[in-house]
Design a protein around this nucleic acid. Sequence first.
DNA 1: CGCCCAATCTAGGCATTGACAAGTCGGTGT
DNA 2: ACACCGACTTGTCAATGCCTAGATTGGGCG
Lengths: 184, 184
Amino acid sequence: MTGQRAYHHGDLRRAVLTAALDVIGSDGPAALSLRDLARRAGVSHAAPAHHFKDRTGLLTAIAAEGFDLLAATLADADGLRDAGVRYVRFAREHPAHFQVMFRPDLHRPEDPALQEARLRAGDRLREAVTAAVDTGDPRLAGVAAWSLAHGFATLLLTHNLTGPVGDRDPEDVFRALTGMLFGS
Amino acid sequence: MTGQRAYHHGDLRRAVLTAALDVIGSDGPAALSLRDLARRAGVSHAAPAHHFKDRTGLLTAIAAEGFDLLAATLADADGLRDAGVRYVRFAREHPAHFQVMFRPDLHRPEDPALQEARLRAGDRLREAVTAAVDTGDPRLAGVAAWSLAHGFATLLLTHNLTGPVGDRDPEDVFRALTGMLFGS
DNA sequence: CGCCCAATCTAGGCATTGACAAGTCGGTGT
DNA sequence: ACACCGACTTGTCAATGCCTAGATTGGGCG
């Protein structure tokens, strides 16, 4: 995945990715500039293009990495509720990835790495759902679970839950929320 | 709200807004260019700036308009479930507004018009929740309802529900979903 | 050991953009 | 008639994305 040989810089690909995640995390994807990333890495302004082709390519790589990380997190989930909690935790721990992953206008949807990673994450999600739901439509249940976790995570990242959540740990709030809905 | 006097153009403010919504709806906010909007409206490249100050100002105005539209839609809701359905419908009918509304990095959060509109929409949401929920924590119920509707709408707009939803009317799917969760 | 080659990075240039400053134009009120 | 003011134009500058050509380096192969 990161198998780029080191050279002048060492591992420019990783360095640019890390810097990009930093910028996106604090100022959003709109503030991303390839030339700025090059400056941060101490290389010439066109060096990043060699690894990512262009700006869209960089964002696509970030999205793919995000789906991979998410898939790995969900794979270890213990039950559907834990999967949801992990989904929320992922969004908080990797806000930059999360923001880019669900913005199709920012990446190249036909990218193979992105497609595979997205499918992997989707499979993990479906596994968690089918293992937990015994009655009714599992497809619908999947949409419900995903919508709930995704909506909560998104509203959290966009500072729309500062009132209701307050000082409490967001993961606890989410747990309380699922408890209320699914009664357990 | 749109009280700009007509002049050379007629109503440049509205024309730029409409063109911007068009661009965002098809290519996302990243594709937005003030100069392109000026070209579409047939005015000079700096004319839009007179109405919106800068790019961020334009996006802020769009977000404020979006929260106003959402508040108006929610005000007519008949019950909590209908409010959710209306939320999803709003996202589908005004995708450009919806995309911009929940992207804090794209607007000026301290803008008074935006803050007021956001509060209005929040009030409508809280009304719908408190009117429907008689037991338990209404605050938590509000977060649950909002998360569910927002997540569903977001995933829908980002083409992440094409599989489960398929050809069915998304609003029907959402109704089925709430029926499953809240049992009715 | 030495040569070639490909991957990596540099340097320069071009079109486009956002933002700013100054000026022009047209209607309105006095 | 005249001053004023908002709407718009023109010109300019720095920054950016992307393209092309060239330089550097390290490893493979004879």
